[in-house]
Amino acid sequence: MTIKVKAYIDRENRKVEVELKGSPKVSDLMKKLKINPVTVIVSRNNELILEDGMLKNNDEIRILSVISGG
């Protein structure tokens, strides 16, 4: 089974649609997007989810960078 997830990456200000196989977790989405999980927090419906959180079909995910300032 394949699911589709919409992800908004705030650091790049872009939205992507990702297809994931099986029963994917947030960590699978990170791997697919080549994002180091140390550098982000992830939310769904304005609630934070952990790396082992399960993703569902049509989930809308926000990937928020922990890096800021300068």
Partner: peptide, 27 residues
């Protein structure tokens, strides 16, 4: 850790949209 501070800021509605100094990439 930066991730802890970001989590706190998110939970307490202090996390604005992403902002990084445009000069930071040179650093």
């Amino acid at each position: 850790a930066e991730k802890e501070v970001t989590t706190y800021a998110f939970l307490n509605r202090m996390l604005d949209s992403f902002n990084e100094c445009p000069n930071a990439i040179h650093s």
